[in-house]
Design a protein around this nucleic acid. Structure first.
Lengths: 219, 219
DNA sequence: TCGGAGATCCCCCGCGCGGGGGATCCGGTT
DNA sequence: AACCGGATCCCCCGCGCGGGGGATCTCCGA
């Protein structure tokens, strides 16, 4: 089975260079060449190639915008490979968010471009190693739990427990019922929490808890 | 300049296979072979190779634990490539969080293993395409803003503005001063916000705002 | 032209909340 | 035995807050 490819780049020379590379492969067919993003979107919709190789810098609509439009339409099954000279982080994030199957630099050796197209076509993805490094760093921080402020150590276990419930917007009476203690007890705990953390009232406590990741939201 | 490599895998056969691959390259030297994670950590500390290629499944200490120990020690400049048969997502996250320079499957062609070592040595990173695909998906959701609940549309611009300030734990008087209006006005806005959103009091409003991403914390 | 939505300001009332005192009981350390 | 930190419960007081009524003004669209 042969793979169909669309090329989008505003430099005719680069397009013919890439086409020459694909032509060396029997199973790859370059079915269209376009010079701007709008044409890329239109031709992808018309020809439904397996893979679209898009430059980021293009007239009318850039490669990122084209990627977003192509991948936003569920009728398209085309995989998108982005090719660029510059690897600004913002570009990378936008590309990956849109669902691109690849983010490659133009310094890529020809044979690797070929393999990239095959990778994309089979539903996998690949990212240039120089970009991957920074992506990992970014990913690591997004996985890392927010740093626990040291003043939290001042709280006793019970106080932390109460703080959790305050953060969940429970009233003193509700917390008392939930912990099976009197509400006067809860008031004492809350007071201690506020004074130890230097917070004015329970409203500040709620904000504090959320900002410092004491409440699990996403993930 | 030649690159030094450490191999860690509990299968002697696989180690000698990889060593044979590296031996075909003049600039790559395999300086050590070990069969478990603890030995890997020790040998890396002793020999300081440029790159350590670790299997994940190993006795005593697995490749992930070894990676964490190696990369936690700032005295080590060794880059870590993880090699595995299975690509469980949890493995990948843990590896990347620890700061691994690569996550590769054992199905990798020999020549790509060689290029992976060179990539790692120069400070870049690479991830197997089949893993990259899922990583992108995960990364995209971590970038995506939390969905805005529809009831927020009921609020007027001013009410949303007040909600933001309530979420930042400002009192009615502080909000009034900040918006240059009377505090009675603020009370009206807050009341409307609470009733429109079905919230009991401002404490619930703070929690609501944080849960629904109306307050920027990380990123 | 009239109506409604939105922003602004006003009064009263009840209550939850937070501060400031205090008390008892238990478990662990000294 | 004496001590202390932690958890529990109690009382009083002042105030911010939220609900329920109002009111005016402006802008915009029917």
């Amino acid at each position: 089975m042969t793979l169909t490819v669309l090329l989008a780049d505003d430099h005719a020379m680069l397009r013919s260079g890439m086409r020459a590379i694909f032509d060396t492969q029997e199973d790859l067919t370059c079915v269209a060449e376009v010079a701007d993003g709008r044409a890329a979107v239109a031709e992808v919709a018309r020809l439904r190639p397996d893979v679209a190789v898009l430059d980021i810098r293009m007239p009318k609509l850039d490669g990122l915008g084209a990627t977003e439009m192509i991948l936003a339409d569920p009728a398209n099954r085309t995989k998108v490979l982005l090719l660029t000279t510059y690897d600004t982080d913002e570009y990378v994030y936008r590309a990956l968010k849109a669902g691109a199957s690849g983010f490659l630099l133009k310094s890529l050796p020809p044979e690797e471009l070929i393999s990239a197209v095959r990778v994309a076509a089979r539903g996998d993805a690949l990212i240039d190693p120089s970009v991957t490094q920074r992506l990992i760093a970014r990913f690591a921080v997004s996985l890392a739990p927010p740093p626990t402020p040291p003043e939290l150590e001042l709280l006793t276990a019970r106080e932390r427990e109460v703080l959790q419930l305050v953060a969940a917007a429970y009233s003193n009476a509700e917390i008392a019922a939930r912990l099976h203690v009197g509400d006067e007890t809860v008031k004492t705990h809350v007071s201690r929490v506020l004074s130890k953390l230097g917070l004015r009232d329970r409203v500040h406590a709620v904000a504090y808890a959320h900002v410092n990741g004491l409440v699990q939201t996403r993930r």
